[in-house]
């Protein structure tokens, strides 16, 4: 099946966000599972994401990093980031690659 243009744009946005790291864990926010959703309409991107802990001191910087990185993508006219706390993030949200990096078992609680 050929992916639709919208899917391609979302994948592209996710790929771009791999350039943004959580500074404490030192790993990109996509593979950490911090990005819950990306919605694209025209040139406007809405990102729904979370942090590893509520009130994280790095929150403003990570949100700023997401905005700056996506704004560099061609055709993007606006980036809006919503930080949510439900569902609560846990290491279970990580990709297999991130779990392997932190030596976290796949079946970890």
């Amino acid at each position: 099946m050929t992916p639709s243009p919208a899917t391609l744009r979302e994948d592209g946005a996710r790929e771009a966000l791999r350039d943004v790291i959580d500074p404490e864990l030192g790993y990109n926010i996509v593979d950490l599972g911090l990005v819950y959703g990306i919605a694209i309409e025209g040139g406007v991107i809405d990102v729904t994401m979370t942090m590893t802990t509520p009130g994280c001191p790095a929150q403003d910087y990570i949100v700023g990093g997401v905005e700056r990185r996506l704004a560099e993508e061609p055709g993007v006219t606006g980036v809006f980031v919503s930080v949510v706390w439900e569902p609560t993030w846990s290491p279970r949200c990580m990709s297999a690659a991130a779990k392997a990096h932190f030596r976290i078992r796949e079946d970890a609680p």
Binding site: D19, I21, P23, G26, V66, R68, R69
Partner: peptide
Amino acid sequence: FLAWLSRYGSQLGRHPVPRVQ
């Protein structure tokens, strides 16, 4: 951690930055 935030926080997303460690 505080050093990272003050030194690299505003550069995140513009170009590669070091990790806290």
